[in-house]
Simulated assay, not measured.
Amino acid sequence: MTPNFKNVHLKFELNGIYYSYKDLNEVAYSFVKEGEPYQQYLGVFLLDWLDHKDYVLVLTSGSTGFPKSIKIKKQAMVHSALATGDFFNLKPGNTALHCLPSNFIAGRMMLIRAIILGLKLDVVKPSSSPLLGINKTYQFSAMTPFQVEKSLVDVNKIDTLIIGGGKVSHALRRKLENKQVYAYETYGMTETVTHIAVKKLNHFAQSKQVSNTYFETLANVTVSQDERECLVIDALKITDKPIVTNDIVKLHSKTSFELLGRYDNVINSGGIKFIPEQIEQKLSNIINQRFFIASMPNEQLGDQVVLLVEDKALDVAKLFSAIQNLKSLHKYEMPKQIFRLPKFVETTTGKIQRIKTLNLLK
């Protein structure tokens, strides 16, 4: 029988203590009144989860515009938790670490997974290095790429680690290759109640039958493309209707796809269309700092390809030379200009806001 959103698994624990559905109200009030800011966010969400409504309001990340509040069905969150549990073979009594902000969907779903699946959840203050000072191991956790980058020394404290909230760079993937952790990149958004597909990131995860070149969907999720070759997600247990995205993909099947880039990032330069993310993938072999490809107006080309790097002390001439010697890069993909910035504009969840960052150059 499928659990509903009023169920609390008998094996569920929060910071080492079991709480019933009724008990959680008291915990939530305590967090709101006496907790630190990260605990207050968790408490506010718990109160929403325990009220009489069948939905919660969730804030989007704002990576492609202003954050907005949307309604998410509580039962959809239950189905999402069950799909994650099935995919990663999570069992009642498994330990989990919650180190994400609880004011966004990814952090909220960590709590719901624990409640529904019966996980023993430890909640710690979100930070760039959440594993620092932790002296125990966990069977499951979720982190952002930035958190993983800062936790590589201790990442073996996690058995299965899902990474989302931003693209996993090739540099980070190389660093994870020989780490003893089942590391997976996730694909999803607030509207899909976090991830609907995963891709393995390292050799250590090979025993779990997931591709390391493309994303594979969770149970009850199928995908297709629209006329723009953008991903369309059909997840009836999560959403009432298909979700049309702006992510350009290459389909491998109804349940697997390769992510190529964002439709709204496509550059038309001299009549040739470029997907910035594909150029970035090639450049990632020679650039260690954060960077991205964008376009700027050009009288002859219409738009020209430019490169922005987050490094105030960058040796531009040296980087230009390295790019020109990069054999994988087509001559038309070569950035016409390189700009260095001390800091990129980010969303509250750490994602780069490309347009706002580009506007810093004006």
Rank of each mutant, 00 (worst) to 15 (best):
F320Y: 14
I243N: 15
F320P: 01
K53S: 09
S20M: 07
Q304H: 14
R108I: 15
L176T: 03
K312M: 10
T60E: 12
Q337W: 10
L24D: 05
F274P: 01
E26T: 14
T349G: 10
G118W: 03
H170K: 11
G302R: 05
I279Q: 00
D48C: 09
V221A: 00
T357R: 07
M110V: 05
L172K: 01
D234W: 03
P276M: 03
K200V: 04
T255W: 04
Q75E: 14
N220I: 07
V306A: 08
I352W: 00
V198N: 11
T64R: 10
I248Y: 04
F140V: 04
V153M: 11
I72H: 03
L236F: 14
I158S: 05
K282H: 06
Y184L: 09
T348K: 09
L201T: 02
T84M: 13
E299K: 14
I293R: 03
T217V: 04
I17S: 14
K22T: 15
Q75M: 13
Q278E: 15
V232Q: 01
I158G: 00
A96W: 14
I72Q: 01
A317Q: 13
H203C: 09
L326Y: 01
I134D: 06
V58T: 12
G35V: 04
A294H: 08
N359D: 13
S256P: 06
F204S: 06
C99W: 00
H52V: 13
F88Q: 06
K11P: 01
T84I: 14
F146L: 10
F12Y: 03
D303A: 09
M334E: 12
V32P: 04
N94C: 13
S127D: 15
G271E: 10
N359H: 14
V210N: 09
V124I: 15
F66N: 15
L119P: 07
R290C: 05
D122E: 14
V193N: 01
F88P: 04
G118Y: 07
K336E: 13
H203A: 10
A322R: 10
L131T: 06
A96K: 03
N4F: 10
E346P: 00
K91S: 15
G133T: 09
K175Y: 08
I158P: 00
L251V: 13
T347V: 07
G350R: 04
G270F: 08
A313N: 15
V266T: 03
N325C: 06
N94H: 14
S80A: 12
P3C: 04
G43Y: 08
P92S: 01
I233P: 01
A219R: 06
E26C: 09
E149M: 10
S269P: 08
K362L: 13
T160M: 08
M77N: 04
I196Q: 01
M110I: 09
L57S: 11
S211W: 08
H9C: 06
D311V: 00
M77H: 05
I162H: 08
V193I: 08
H9I: 08
P276W: 09
R340D: 11
Y41G: 05
F146S: 00
T192E: 06
M109T: 02
F12A: 07
Q147V: 06
V124M: 06
L131V: 06
